[in-house]
Design a protein around this nucleic acid. Structure first.
Lengths: 226, 226
DNA sequence: CCCTGTAATTGAACATGTTCAAATTGAACT
DNA sequence: AGTTCAATTTGAACATGTTCAATTACAGGG
């Protein structure tokens, strides 16, 4: 479950086969979409029997999961670099999103297969246990986006704000996936407007006066997560 | 597509068969879940051949859609009655939700099949064209919940607020569907807390001072809906 | 009461995700 | 080289949503 098609040296022959299957799948997914691609096609394209695909991946979904996992790993250095570019919170949040969208651009449609499931039981849901690790690592980046910015966050709000921002991000990404406007212009507009609102709210939330509001929001969040 | 299993007189034999299939399906869905129920089972249970089910319903999904449609019709009088019970906005909003949750309670799990799809292209998505009619009718109830309350809504905000409230409702319903706590206690808590926040925000939004904020929110919404 | 055409019904066939028992491979050991 | 055994590979078989050509039921007209 660890190897990826872009690792420099697929050590064993097994790894090489796994990589070939993953590559074939991603190629077909990009060209004809997730639903439209058959496990038999993937196997044929990779030059193996149908069953072999299932020897390496538990299911068709699991192939997407493997891609998602690999993506997260490859994104890490890009995000690190982005976080070094600015101290301004709005810039930092925009960068987090931009880097991801640019990276996933070629597979935008495919991401639908990942994001289309709200059911937290479904393996491909962004809220499922299967995607937990990736999710938590992602939330950490919002923690860092905040920490590295010039903006102060109230102590009681600190543990929760990153998760709130992550949720906003997921909403925007979802919108982006299904955005049919020319080169996703609408998403671009939405991101800019959302950032303005979010950053303003974050700043506001630090006011001592806002403590009761923070408490209510935190209370709400804890009820949700409990 | 119009008849339902609970209509008093299924006029024709055809209607009667259709109703029998829908009933059998709903019964099986309730007992073993949507995914776990087979079209062959449904047909057998209804005493027809597999193909017959497809003569009356375009797909397995379409059966759920038919149920959803029927539900909306049956809910209408209940919601009307609820709207006559109080002038207080919080009460009215709570009632809208409570009536629906109580109605759907026996099929809570099944609703997952309806709500689990974020893809607006998917027939069962709450955002799909197939569910548009039901959706718009539902949004109207929020319009009425506002209109019949003692609370004033700023002119510029009036066309948009119902949709915002509807979205909040969908979020709560989604939470409810997957709420595994004892008799969905967590949802109950979440509803109460959410209502407090939402009603407070609605009241706040009417302040003349808030006009710029309303503009930003409206702008955001229009970007999303465009 | 028979004829005719539409509506309804049937069950086999198909496509595709998945499983599985059997065959093959290949490395390590003797 | 021969043996052994786990890893790999195979392709047929299975389950299930869906399609479809063929058949039957039945209402209305003669």
């Amino acid at each position: 479950m660890e190897k990826s098609s872009t690792d420099v040296r697929p050590k064993t022959k097994s790894d090489e086969t796994r990589a070939r299957i993953l590559d074939a799948a991603m190629d077909l997914f990009r060209r004809q979409g997730f639903e439209e691609t058959t496990m038999r096609e993937i196997a044929t394209e990779a030059g193996v029997a149908t069953g072999a695909a299932y020897y390496y991946f538990d299911s068709k979904d699991a192939i997407v999961l493997a891609f998602y996992d690999q993506a997260q790993k490859e994104l890490q250095p890009l995000l690190d670099k982005a976080m070094a570019a600015s101290k301004d919170l709005k810039d930092r949040l925009r960068l987090l999103l931009e880097v991801k969208l640019r990276y996933f651009e070629p597979n935008r449609r495919l991401l639908g297969a990942l994001a289309a499931h709200a059911d937290p039981e479904h393996p491909l849901s962004p809220f499922s246990p299967q995607t937990r690790e990736v999710r938590e690592r992602d939330i950490e980046y919002f923690q860092r986006a905040l920490a590295g910015s010039s903006i102060h966050v109230a102590r009681d709000f600190e543990p929760h704000l990153p998760r709130i921002l992550w949720m906003c991000q997921m909403g925007l990404i979802l919108f982006w996936i299904y955005d049919r406007s020319q080169s996703q212009k609408r998403t671009q507009a939405l991101v800019e407007k959302s950032l303005a609102i979010v950053v303003r709210l974050v700043k506001l939330s630090d006011l001592p006066l806002m403590k009761p509001v923070r408490r209510i929001v935190i209370d709400l969040l804890e009820t949700m997560m409990a």
